[in-house]
Amino acid sequence: MTNVPQAAPLLAIDDLRVAYHRVAVALHGVTLRVMPQTIVALVGNNGAGKTTALRAISGFIGVDDARVIGGSIRFAGRRIENEPPHANTARGIVLVPERDKVFPNLTVAENLTVAATRRASSAERRRLDELVFALFPALAPLRARLAGLLSGGERQMLAFGSAIVCKPELLLVDELSLGLAPVVVDDLARRVRAIRRELGITVLLVEQNVGVALAIADYGYVIESGHVVLEGPAGELRGRPEIQQFYLGLATGNQVRRYRALRERPANGPGDRRQ
C-alpha cells in the first residue's frame, strides 16, 4: 500500500499499533510517511484513530494509560515509540492539540514563555516571540490577556504560537478547523502554508474537514477504524469519487459513510444505512 519515496522521510510510521488501558486497541497497523517540508493530511471520521496516531507520535503520559504495542515510529531515522512528550518536543516534534490547547489561567505572553525550548538563549526566545506575533499579528495586542478569555480562533493561533516557540521541525496539528468559522479557517490555512514555506516546518495535519485538509496538504491519508484505507497526493485524492462522495459532502441520498463499506459492497445497496 505504501509507495516508497525517493528521499528519506522525516517521519516514517510502519504498522503502528496502539492500545489503551492495556487492552483496547485503537490503531491496527497504520503505515505512513511524511517527507521533509511537506504538509501531509490524515483524514477520516470521528473515532477513526487519527488523534491516537498523532498522540502516539507526540508521546503519551502516565494518565493516558496508552502504549505503542507494535510497529515503529521513526523521526529523522531514529525510533521514538513510547518516548515521553517532552523528549519528543525537544527532538522537534511539537503538537497543537485538539482540545485544551492553551493554558487558560496563563496570559498569552506566559503561554509563550512556558515552552521549554531546547537550546534557546534569551535573545532567541525574544526572537521566537516576535516571530509568533509577526505570524499572528492579532495576538500582539492580547499579550496580557488570560488565554481562557480568548476566542476560538485566537486560541488556535496561540496554540500554534506556543508550538512554534518550541522550534519544531515537525508540527503535528490535531484539527485545524474544528469549531471555527470558515473565514477563520481560511486564514489559519494560509498561515499553516506560510509556516511551512517561510520556516521550513513540516506539518502533519489531522482533520475531519477533508475539504480543508486536502486544500492545504500536499499528500493525504484516509484512515478508518484504525486502518489506512486510502492515500495519495492531495490533488489526486480530491478528485477521487469516493472522497467526493463520502468526505466532501458532494454525495446525495442514502449513503454508506465509510469507505471500507463501499469497497465491501455495492454503493446504495440494501443494509447500507448504518449508524
Partner: peptide
Amino acid sequence: TAWGVRMRAAGQNPLLAEQRGIRL
C-alpha cells in the same frame, strides 16, 4: 520566572505541559 510559569502550567494541564517540552 519561566520555571514558575511552568509550575503553574503543569498544575493546569500536565499533558500540554509535557507537549510544550516541560519535563513533568
